[in-house]
Write a protein that binds this DNA or RNA. Structure first.
Lengths: 338, 338
DNA sequence: GCCGATCGTCGAAGCGCTTCGACGACGAGG
DNA sequence: CCTCGTCGTCGAAGCGCTTCGACGATCGGC
């Protein structure tokens, strides 16, 4: 492996000149630059990351903390990760992958040992224990999610409250007045994962504003969970004509169940799903859905981290507006049913 | 951030002594060690990763190259990643996540700039262009997959040929003689992804050995793809009594289709799937399946990398034996059908 | 035509750690 | 009792890079 000194010798300049060619931090004459670049190319020089980090206190690495335990929502997590890695690369950064279950210790480890310049976390909980730890780090962090006390930490996410509102507005606009929410699994609520809370809050608010009759229930995974959830909803409110589903896993078994029990979608029951576009269209009936824009959110998170790193201003709370796209699972309800 | 010098001063020793306490490379008296450790704890000292890498030429980081483009098999990829990260941590290593689509350049970048000690790649193709590049790196690599020319590079994977053999043996043992293979999507074959090839080869060999009548077809994603695939299989061989499905995505639509066309599983058609355990049991009928042991494979890959790193011997090709677990999708065929 | 600013380059001082050789102390073996 | 080997520690020399201050050269302004 050639070093910067080898390059300097080959090009007949000093090492610092090579460094300035590389970083562009000082003007270098065109000829010198050309000679240096030629030498770099010829020798196949690549700066040593560790040396660079040591001298410059920059690693060009971002930590991404993902809930890798195969929980729920695997595809969404994957989309976030993809977006983050891709965006990071576009800023000439790499991504160090941490698992959420290393907890606070993992964050501190990589931060204290200066392995990363910034951290991006996903799957935040309402009173996430990691938040206070993050505040103590010298590296900035960006959250994908919106825990309760996030002052001073940048947060990026879909506006789940608005999403719920939009789902209900859409259904109400189609004449639906009795609506059930099939929520995430109880485990998600138990962890107080922030998106679940925010969606539910938005749902209840909008429900009141629009003067709808609504019921909500979490939904355990699997066909059995869906069956229970639906039964609960029906028991608490009869004449439900529409369902909002904020639970990717439940979608498929739910459709199966409705089909099996002779409730046609959308003729007997309308559905608005909250899920990535591709899962909405992978269903036998293409679902009217509110997209979870994982790609945008991931990209935005990286962008925010970059701004933070070079000291530019950032919006500390950035909630992306939801967008509902109509497909085949909602139907105008006839006045007689209202 | 305290440095090793601060610790040394606080403990009244030289920096090198602190280093030896940390690394254990030289004997240190119990008292000195205690003093040093106390100082470390008190100051909250964490060695600077870059400095360490520079001085020791070890980064304690592994590169993991994953196909992050949301392709097929997302859950499996996630399981691999989880296993790799977890295993790496257990060896005190971290994981740098690269996307496959950075190709050769990405590997060279992280290797040449000494960001990682070793590389783990997944989703290998038969004549993967990255293999020659890997050979030139100073860091060792471990492949999850088995490309055609892998001499000198460690490979780890499920033995897909044996898996195919086992599936057919199981079905043959239940009296099935006419069997169809629902393969991965044509895109997977086109890329000559190694597991697809190996499974197919094993399937054909076993089919001949067991004197079965078999047909095979790739299967495009989506319900339409499944319909076409099944139609093709039926057209080429009538009286099919069993299906081997080596395509996670296809499983669900396939069951739907069979159901819709009145072919009962397992009464009319038996199924052996190749997929992670949890997807096999997530189906309405619990499928007899051959597990894709992502966790074991990922862990083994890391283990292999570690052995390579400290110069121990490794088996250069390690194919894990498949294990078929019986569930509810296979049925003994009555002699009248044979 | 002189002065100060700007340009382009160099040298040297680190960044924080590991590791090698050296060296005193001490116990064991002859 | 002397020597040799081992133990425990230290000092110094890097590892490969960035960055700061310095300095000659060049240039525009008056």
């Amino acid at each position: 492996m050639p070093t910067i000194n080898d390059v300097a010798k080959a090009a007949g300049v000093s090492p610092s000149t090579v460094s300035y060619v590389l970083s562009g931090r000082r003007p270098i004459s065109a000829e010198t630059r050309a000679r240096v670049q030629a030498a770099i190319a010829e020798l196949g020089f690549h700066p040593h990351a560790g040396a660079r980090a040591l001298a410059s206190s920059k690693t060009n690495v971002l930590a991404l903390v993902a809930p890798l335990r195969v929980d729920v929502n695997v595809p969404v997590i994957m989309q976030f990760a993809t977006a983050v890695v891709t965006a990071a690369r576009s800023y000439n950064h790499d991504v160090l992958l941490l698992t959420k279950d290393e907890g606070t210790a993992g964050l501190e480890r990589v931060a204290h040992s200066t392995m990363v310049d910034a951290l991006i976390l996903m799957d935040l909980e309402r009173d996430d224990l990691r938040i206070p730890a993050l505040r103590k780090l010298k590296q900035p962090s960006v959250l994908i999610g919106l825990p309760s006390d996030h002052t001073g930490i940048a947060c990026v996410d879909l506006d789940f409250a608005a999403a719920a509102r939009e789902a209900l507005t859409h259904l109400a606009g189609h004449g639906h007045r009795r609506i059930g929410l099939v929520g995430p699994s109880p485990a998600v609520y138990r962890r107080q994962t922030t998106y679940a809370d925010r969606f539910l809050a938005g749902f209840l608010e909008a429900s009141a504003e629009l003067e709808l009759r609504t019921v909500t229930h979490p939904c355990e995974p699997g066909a059995a969970g869906v069956r229970t959830c639906l039964a609960d909803l029906d028991a608490e409110l009869d004449g439900i004509t529409a369902l909002v589903v904020h639970n990717e896993e439940a979608l498929r078994p739910l459709l199966d169940l409705l089909h099996a029990t002779g409730r046609r979608v959308p003729d007997d029951v309308s559905i608005v799903a909250v899920c990535p576009r591709d899962v909405a269209t992978a269903m036998p009936i293409h679902l009217t859905s509110i997209d979870i824009p994982a790609h945008d959110v991931g990209t935005l998170a990286v962008e925010t981290a970059m701004r933070l790193l070079d000291g530019r201003r950032v919006e500390y709370t950035r909630l992306l507006a939801p967008s509902l796209v109509e497909r085949d699972s909602c139907r105008e309800i006839s006045t007689s049913h209202r």
